[in-house]
Design a binder for these strands. Structure first.
Length: 1016
RNA sequence: GGGUGAUUAGCUCAGUUGGUAGAGCGCUUCCUUUACACGGAAGAUGUCGGGAGUUCGAGCCUCUCAUCACCCA
């Protein structure tokens, strides 16, 4: 059956993939012939995700490695799976509920909402797993994991799994080891999703903002001499002030100020340090006074040099407040509006004043409960509140003013200067934090959150890289890794979401005793924390707490209530019962994906698959180094005392061909599936491999993909060539013992490329592997070997013909095997052309022959000489305008023994490929001969009358010029005694050899020019 | 502001202990020669961002300047 003209990727890819999958070709351990394992964990895509070019790129890398190792007989696993993606998924489902007119999340309640999420996941989640198949990914789909598998809320229809167990177990263990704690800390709060988010989920964007300047009057109308000096100490300003000037970009947070800080070195404010000043906003009668303190944080040259300290709403202020024990008053609710809860402002302000005066003790809980927002601001959105604060202060005359002069036209049209005194407001660029998903301004918020004490687990991860147990590629990633881990912050792992792993912590009312009366009671405000994997275990812990207290009085029935309020209410209403409740928060998705290297392998259950831990290589985008890679390393060490992988391969963001980020708004998104539709998966993969230079910029170009599609067709046509010559293809080709120079040569070239490819793959230089195979298949096999074989295949020498057929088959098989990890589909298809094969190509044995075994130096030299002769002849023909189709005579003079032998061995193919009708040795060139200088003899094309003498002289002189440049360099080096003395021997020898060769060539050309000149 | 990286042919990029620059695409000319026009043959194109230094020798190492990108504040 004749082959199709080209490979029909559209239909064949689907068929071939199904064949592999049905045969279980990708299952863990498939084709294993040795005990060593090779495991790659797929970075789990979001369950909501779709395949984009970044996936296509890193999947190609992982698949190349996996297929390569599998063919080498390793016990291989490429572990797939999905990440539950807390915010993204919750958002997706909420949108869908809204779009389909269903009740909102809050109306549904937690349980019902989670049902909806699972429903959505069952129907639409994990699309990306189907898309990944189109790339040819050889993952073990039967093992596909999900970070929420085994969760309490999972429906029976879900594939079983126990990832949830791993997450809870790790949480409980780390909690018991004191590595997880709950605390009030300033976190990035997303007012849209009403949850904490991590630093890494915040994008800082420069926006146009304002800097307002306000006066904070000194308490009791006190005054001081405010003096400004220039660099030389000369006084530039001296005035008596009764206020301190404060600059802020966020006036609405003034309501929560706890102090004003100045730099201890700042002489301007030295007279008033320790005094009180008034926050110039809120009801006049209850203006709060706050202390002026010193702290190294304020920059004397920035603004007025005095900074208002609002610990609950700014990260820098938070640190200052902690240092100075300044209360941090929270002003906003979860939606970013000014608080409307708590006691009336009058009472709260009085308490705050007592604290500021040092008359009242305070603690965190007390401060948190206080609402210092005056009634007129309560309930306002934070941005409305800002405008109102500015307006109110300005109206009261407490804004810092300055004069602005502008030119206006009066009634008669005359230009007049108008000077006004207006509030001093600087328009300036400020960096503002935005939620990367919600796109709203992130509000630093003081809330109760769960943290991993990263300081306690970061050590082993750092050591892994420092000690070389884990290698980061490219190496530059290591510096970045150190920098980040050495300055690591506590990791906030709680999220105020519903979709995710609910924190395995229950609370029970604390049993307390009134010291005076001896009466025992249940304290719901200060509950006992019970960290356990389930309610029953939590209850056991509660019983431990109960020991030693009231005895029979608390011998109650213990039940679980939905939240703290319900527990208290139900306990009061049901005297026989006591209720516990669970922490409503869920864990950060990265907490669970941090367990990916072993959670996917059945842990904590005893599972045979745990033999794949530790895995080998992690392939991911460099932007995710901290998000995920560092966390996996920390968690694997914390839990299993081992590194999760020995190599981290980082790649850059995949961009469009101009190097710009792809984005929907720019419209420059390239969909990998479109590329596969147009050019086939192999072309996309080859293109990915070819651009995978370590640390390189990834710019995807459709032209390039198209080029690699053409390469596939070239390979296809090489097989079509074999079929054309009716070369039988019974099965796996054996390497013949070659006698023909051409065959020896191509076998040697194959040995070289095998080594090159392995060396490249071993060092993660995928571009080198791809380019070596491209150059070999196209540049060596198709351009030369197939051409060389034609005269033999068409010739009468049966033995030579048979040997060549065998060699050809073998070489083509090697192309398929070596290319398979990069281009699996077309190679598997071509592999199937043979009558019978021991195995599918996906399981074919990867070769181990070496260049040393296969290269025949004489054959190598001879064929390179033949190729050079053909190329030089073609070049001379073309430049002398010999018609492409015309056959001409070739003569040679002064041929040495090696040349003679090469000539004799390869006359037929030289004639064919250089379009020569006769080869003749002559003593002297006839007149008008085009010269072709070669090592070991001078060749010539006797073109007699055809030759254009001046043009031929020009051609030779041009060659001579190039040669002269080279010769100059070589002679310069060799004449330099320092070079000969200090350069390595082989470099000197090479230069000498090269020089001799070039000098020979030069002589030949000079002789030729002399001949031509005689003629002219 | 801190960090990292980049700057090489018209374009997109390689270039692994420093030995005298390559690929793909594009371009020019010729060729439908029995594997392949998604092809074949030939050809042109680079003060390797600027400057200085180390060295017999620098695209590669050092310093400096310029421009750009990304990450983190």
């Amino acid at each position: 059956m004749a082959m199709d003209k080209t490979f029909d990727a559209k239909t064949a890819e689907k068929r071939i993939y199904e064949m592999w999958e049905n045969a279980g070709a990708f299952k863990a351990g498939a084709n294993a012939s040795r005990d060593e394992t090779f495991a790659i964990m797929l970075p789990p895509p979001n369950v909501t995700g779709h395949l984009h070019v970044g996936h296509a790129f890193n999947h190609t890398i992982m698949d190349m490695l996996t297929r390569w190792k599998r063919m080498q007989g390793y016990d291989t696993l490429w572990q797939p799976g999905l990440d539950h993606a807390g915010i993204a998924t919750q958002l997706m489902v909420e949108k869908e509920l809204a779009a389909t007119g269903q009740p909102k999340r809050t109306e549904l309640g937690r349980e019902k909402f989670l049902e909806k999420v699972w429903e959505w996941k069952g129907e639409k989640g994990g699309m990306i797993e189907q898309q990944a198949r189109r790339l040819g990914d050889s993952m073990d789909w039967s093992r596909s994991a999900f970070t929420m598998s085994g969760a309490e809320s999972a429906p029976a229809t879900e594939k079983p799994g126990n990832f949830h167990d791993a997450v809870l177990k790790v949480f409980v263990e780390l909690y018991n080891q004191g590595k997880i704690y709950r605390g009030k800390r300033l976190v990035n709060w997303d007012p849209h999703f009403e949850t904490a988010i991590s630093d890494l989920e915040v994008e800082n964007i420069e926006v146009d903002g304002h800097m307002w300047h306000f006066k904070y009057p000194l308490a009791g109308g006190e005054t001081y001499e405010y003096v400004e000096k220039d660099e030389d100490g000369n006084v530039t300003l001296r005035e008596t002030r009764d206020y301190i000037s404060i600059a802020t970009t966020r006036p609405e947070t003034m309501l929560g100020d706890g102090a004003v800080a100045v730099n201890p070195k700042d002489e301007r404010y030295a007279p008033i340090v320790g005094k009180l000043c008034e926050i110039p906003v809120g009801p006049k009668a209850q203006r709060r006074l706050i202390p002026i303190i010193t702290d190294p944080y304020p920059d004397m040259d920035f603004g007025s040099g005095a900074v208002k300290i609002t610990g609950a709403h700014d990260f820098n202020d938070y640190e200052v407040a902690k240092r100075g024990n300044i209360p941090m008053y929270s002003l906003m609710d979860t939606k970013g509006a000014m608080r409307a809860d708590g006691k009336p402002y009058v009472e709260e302000a009085a308490t705050a004043q007592a604290i500021a005066n040092g008359a009242q003790e305070f603690d965190e809980a007390m401060i948190a409960a206080m609402n210092l927002v005056p009634e007129e601001y309560r309930g306002l959105d934070r941005f409305e509140a800002r405008a109102k604060v500015v307006a109110d202060i300005t109206a009261e005359g407490l804004a810092v003013m300055h004069d602005v002069t502008r030119i206006e036209k009066d009634e008669d049209g005359n230009k007049v200067e108008v000077t006004e005194t207006v509030p001093y407001v600087e328009a300036k660029k400020i960096m503002q934090p935005f939620g990367d998903r919600s796109k709203v301004v992130i509000e630093p918020a003081l809330t109760d959150q769960w943290f991993v004490d990263t300081d306690k687990i970061v050590g082993p991860a750092l050591d892994a890289v420092k000690e070389g147990r884990t290698k980061i590629m490219p190496e530059s990633g290591e510096k970045v890794f150190y920098h980040w881990l050495e300055n690591i912050e506590p990791w906030c792992i709680s999220r105020q979401l519903w979709w995710g792993h609910q924190i395995p912590v229950w609370y029970g009312p604390r049993i307390s005793r009134n010291d005076k009366t001896g009466q025992e009671w249940l304290d719901f405000d200060n509950p006992v924390v019970l960290c356990a994997q389930n309610f029953n275990e939590a209850l056991d812990l509660y019983h431990d707490h109960k020991q030693g207290w009231g005895g029979a009085a608390f011998d109650l029935q213990y039940l679980e209530a939905e939240n703290a309020e319900a527990a208290e209410k139900k306990t009061r209403e049901n005297p026989g019962n006591n209720y516990l409740w669970r922490d409503p928060d869920v864990l950060d998705t990265w907490f669970s994906s941090g367990l990916w290297p072993f959670g996917t392998l059945g842990w904590p259950a005893e599972d045979e698959a745990m033999k794949y831990f530790p895995g080998d290589v992690l392939v991911t985008g460099q932007d995710i180094l901290f998000f995920w890679v560092a966390r996996m390393m920390m968690m694997s060490q914390a839990v299993l005392k081992d590194d999760p992988f020995h190599t981290v391969y980082l790649h850059q963001l995949v961009r469009d061909e101009k190097g710009e980020k792809m984005s929907k708004t720019k419209g420059n998104v390239i969909d990998p599936l479109d590329m596969i539709d147009a050019y086939g998966a192999d072309a996309l993969r080859m293109s990915n491999a070819a651009m995978a230079a370590l640390g390189g910029v990834l710019k995807i170009s459709e032209d390039r993909i198209k080029g690699y599609r053409n390469f596939g067709t070239k390979l296809w046509n090489a097989f079509s060539f074999a079929q054309h010559y009716e070369i039988a293809y019974p099965g796996d080709a054996q390497r013949p013992v070659a006698t023909q120079t051409v065959n020896k040569w191509i076998i040697g070239e194959t040995g070289k490329v095998r080594e090159e490819v392995d060396a490249a793959l071993e060092s993660y230089r995928f571009n080198d592997a791809a380019n070596a195979l491209y150059a070999f298949t196209w540049g060596k096999v198709c351009d030369w070997y197939l051409e060389f074989s034609k005269p033999i295949l068409q010739g009468e020498d049966a033995a030579a013909k048979s040997e060549t057929e065998q060699t050809l088959r073998w070489v083509l098989d090697q192309c398929l095997i070596l290319l398979h990890p990069i281009m699996p589909f077309i190679t598997e298809e071509l592999w199937g052309l043979a009558d019978s094969r021991a195995k599918m190509l996906v399981h074919a044995d990867w070769p181990t022959y070496t260049a040393a075994e296969l290269v025949d130096a004489d054959a190598d030299r001879e064929m390179n000489w033949v190729i050079a002769l053909i190329e030089n002849t073609r070049s001379a023909r073309a430049q002398s305008h010999v018609p492409a189709g015309a056959k001409v005579a070739l003569v040679v003079t002064g041929l040495d023994a090696k040349g003679q032998s090469a000539w004799d061995n390869n006359a037929a193919l030289i004639q064919r490929l250089a379009r020569i009708d006769s080869l003749t040795a002559v003593d002297a060139f006839p007149k008008g001969c085009v010269t072709i200088p070669m090592d070991g003899g001078t060749f010539g094309l006797p073109l007699a009358d055809l030759i254009d003498v001046p043009e031929e002289i020009a051609r030779l002189e041009k060659t001579l010029q190039k040669l002269a440049k080279e010769l100059g360099g070589l002679r310069g080096r060799l004449n330099n005694p320092n070079f000969v003395a200090s350069a390595p021997e082989e470099v000197v020898a090479e230069a000498k050899e090269n020089l001799a060769l070039r000098e020979g060539e030069e002589a030949q050309i000079k002789a030729a020019i002399a001949r031509l000149k005689e003629l002219g």
